[in-house]
């Protein structure tokens, strides 16, 4: 049986571990006057790209420019700017490059429409292939039905009497050669 003090100390240890874990996770402490800004902040820094490090967002990067821009995003949020205004603020300085989710406009419509167009193209090709198979199927079936049950098996036309004669002749010759 576990005594009360040891139970307490276990509880204490658990608490310490829990708290230390939390401290470790939030090394970069961001304070907001209004906690409602935090989810917006998280969303923005996840969608904004670090200008220096190419393939990281502001949230993932620890380059000095990302640290500065995170602070700037926080400051702009505190000033009461909307997400759209903050993005406009940053694109007017760092160009569209900074947006991981580019706006739909004349030089990005291809980017947005290409997946849909390719999907449609794939569907059209698939449809046409299936149509073609259907149109060739009936002729196959009629032959297949007359000879065998299986459609997969190659259909063999019966030899004509003339050909059968030639075949027999050929077989006889080769047998003779081997002997």
């Amino acid at each position: 049986m576990i005594s009360l003090p040891s139970k307490l100390s276990k509880f204490g240890l658990g608490l310490v571990l829990l708290v230390s874990c939390e401290l470790f996770a939030s090394a970069d402490v961001v304070e907001f006057s209004d906690e409602q800004l935090r989810p917006r902040y998280q969303q923005l820094i996840a969608e904004l790209r670090c200008p220096k490090c190419q393939n990281q967002n502001l949230a993932d990067s620890n380059s000095p420019i990302s640290v500065d821009l995170r602070r700037q995003v926080q400051r702009l949020l505190e000033e009461g700017m909307s997400n759209k205004q903050i993005k406009a603020y940053l694109t007017s300085r760092y160009s569209d490059f900074i947006l991981y989710r580019p706006q739909v406009k004349e030089n990005t419509w291809f980017l947005w429409l290409a997946p849909i167009a390719l999907l449609l193209l794939g569907l059209i090709i698939l449809y046409r292939i299936s149509q073609r198979q259907k149109s060739t199927d009936p002729s196959n079936k009629s032959v297949a039905d007359s000879s065998t049950e299986s459609v997969d098996e190659p259909t063999v036309e019966p030899l004509s009497a003339d050909d059968q004669l030639r075949l027999r002749e050929l077989l006889k010759n080769t047998n003779g050669d081997s002997n």
Binding site: P51, K52, P64, I65, D68, L69, Q72, R93, Y94, S95
Partner: peptide, 12 residues
């Protein structure tokens, strides 16, 4: 602080 840097879009 790099404030003018941010306004200029300096990244390096």
């Amino acid at each position: 602080q790099g404030t003018l840097g941010i306004d200029l879009g300096v990244y390096g």
